[in-house]
């Protein structure tokens, strides 16, 4: 580990100011929980010269309902998400996804914002937010800009964030508040294991016609970034809700995924998981919709 300059900021304005000052001449990294960054600081040959600590930034700490929807501050931890009454009520899938990230210690320190910024394709924070069409609010020298989550990721460990920008807020749009959503993860063991595949499914139900409305399916660990299963979504839109339709959507989602083989699993096995997890995530979301009806 090399030496670096360390700034602890009190809010996002401060953070942006420090970033603006140092990002031109230095390699700057933002730290919140540090669960990803510390490993990088220890093992990566290109360590930063400047580290900006946003974990004390007051304006990035809350989970609030606003006119835009549900806002989750960048430094809200996974544990806080698990315990948040609003999230448990509206989006149990988000709480469940937070629950399968790392261990208790990781969840107490690690933040949802950090999970997204790290942008590994197998992240557990991504698929549920993607299925809920989350918007990322980015703070930069020219103020805020908003980017849909499915445009936020560029590739493995790459996002649209510029060197002088900061992920400030995650916003689940108002139209999706309470939308029945289900998240599933499949790892080689139960806890503290990377997902071989993870999946989230979300849809409204037209109870009169008993059809899928605005179905959204997101998949992790099967492409260079978290993806939407657009063909499967198109297949389900307006279709009658049946077990067969959900199974078929799973089969179609396999075509949306481009997994690789590695030492954890083959691509062929991951494709099978895409089908199974998509179907089961749809079943889970439907069960939630019925319970909420």
């Amino acid at each position: 580990m090399r030496t670096f300059e360390f700034f602890a900021v009190k809010d996002s304005h401060d953070a942006v100011a420090v970033l603006a000052k140092h990002s031109v001449s230095s390699k700057v990294r933002v730290i919140a929980g540090g669960t990803d960054l510390l490993a990088e600081l220890k093992f990566s040959p290109q360590s930063p010269n400047v580290v900006v600590d946003i974990s004390r930034a007051e304006d990035l700490k809350s989970i609030t309902l606003t006119d835009d929807g549900l806002s989750i501050g960048a430094v809200v931890t996974h544990s806080q998400i698990m315990q948040s009454p609003i999230i448990r009520e509206m989006f149990p899938a988000l709480a469940n996804a937070a629950h399968v990230i790392g261990a208790v210690q990781t969840r107490n320190l690690g933040t949802l914002g950090g999970n997204l910024v790290t942008a590994v394709p197998s992240m557990d924070g991504g698929p549920t937010l993607m299925a809920l069409e989350a918007i990322i609010s980015i703070a930069g020298p020219d103020g805020r800009r908003q980017v849909p989550l499915n445009e936020f990721f560029v590739g493995p460990r790459k996002t649209v964030l510029k060197a002088d920008e900061l992920l400030a807020e995650i916003i689940i749009p108002r139209r999706n508040l309470g939308k029945p959503t289900h998240f599933l993860k499949f790892g080689l063991r139960k806890g503290q294991a990377l997902a071989l595949v993870n999946a989230a499914a979300s849809f409204w139900v037209d109870w009169e016609k008993h059809t899928f409305v605005a179905p959204r399916i997101a998949l992790g660990a099967v492409a260079p970034k978290v993806i939407r299963a657009l063909q499967a979504e198109a297949y389900l839109e307006g279709r009658e809700i049946t077990p067969e339709a959900m199974a078929e959507a799973g089969r179609i989602a396999i075509g949306d995924a481009k997994p690789i083989s590695d030492f954890r699993a083959s691509a062929g096995y991951r494709r099978n998981l895409v089908g199974v997890l998509t179907k089961r995530a749809l079943e889970g979301a439907y069960a939630l919709a019925q319970a909420k009806r």
Binding site: R189, K190, F263
Partner: peptide
Amino acid sequence: TLFEEMRFNEGQVINASLADYKIPGMLD
């Protein structure tokens, strides 16, 4: 029995860490 296995590529262990080689946890 269920998941531990050293994986090799031409004699090189490719999962030589507890991040990549999982031993049973309490949940297992």
